[in-house]
Amino acid sequence: MLTILFDGTAYGMLLFVLACGLSVTLGLMNFINLAHGAFAMAGGYCTVVLVNRIGVPFALGLPLAFLVTALLGGLFERTLYVHVYARPHLDQVLFTIGLVFMSVAATDYVMGSSQQFVRIPEALAGQFNVFGIGMGKYRLLIIVVCGVLTLALQFILAKTRFGSRLRAAVDDQRVARGLGINVGAVFGITFAVGSGLAGLGGALGAEILGLDPTFPLKYMIYFLIVVTVGGTSSITGPFLASILLGIGDVAGKYYVPSLGAFVIYAIMIVVLILRPQGLFARGAAR
């Protein structure tokens, strides 16, 4: 039971790191980016290449995955995404689904369709036994890394100048522009960091989530659940939603394996119908 809670938390925190960038882009530019998972996959494959083939240490592979994906995200944002911000949602959906398809096929072409594993250091294999609960060392690492990242994000958003600009832009773009905030630049940076975080999540999660070319499609719905259920007005909402989703999914697969993701989808629909602004949105209750 506690092991499920533990695994679920690790899984949930991973989902949060993967999806938080999406939540910000959706909240900031009202942009539906279905291709977010493609950046996560890029991070995963980047680590596979670096660690397994070139022999970079795992501890260095993770930050590199972040950097590479952040650069990639920034590049895509400046060259492609900027053209689609002002378009209707249908165009955004088509555009980003197109990117997903391309990334899936391209990855298949370059890396092959089989599942990839990141070589993880010996020290991270196995598990601790605390009060009779088996805690996988690797999962513990995930919780620690993601926890630190979450706190850092919270700090950046709440306390730094960039954070306040970002929040101003989220609240009201026109007013933010009037205050002399370069919304485009803020968004570009946020997009890059969000993509980088997704890449880091993909690298960390390759072990748990599995990494193959269909990754962006398989997890797209999970990211979207985190974002729509959590709401886009803060990062606390998506965080709580991620943890709930993680624990719910692990518990669901353990207790009612035959129903699989059915329960998750059903809950998502109910939440969306009852609270279209998200479960944890500010003052959305009526």
């Binding site: 492609l80 555009f95 197109g98 990117l99 398809f101 391309m102 899936v104 391209a106 072409y109």
Partner: peptide, 11 residues
């Protein structure tokens, strides 16, 4: 790699 071309077309 049919999917790639579909995606490209969408974009």
């Amino acid at each position: 790699y049919w999917q790639f071309w579909i995606g490209l077309l969408l974009v």
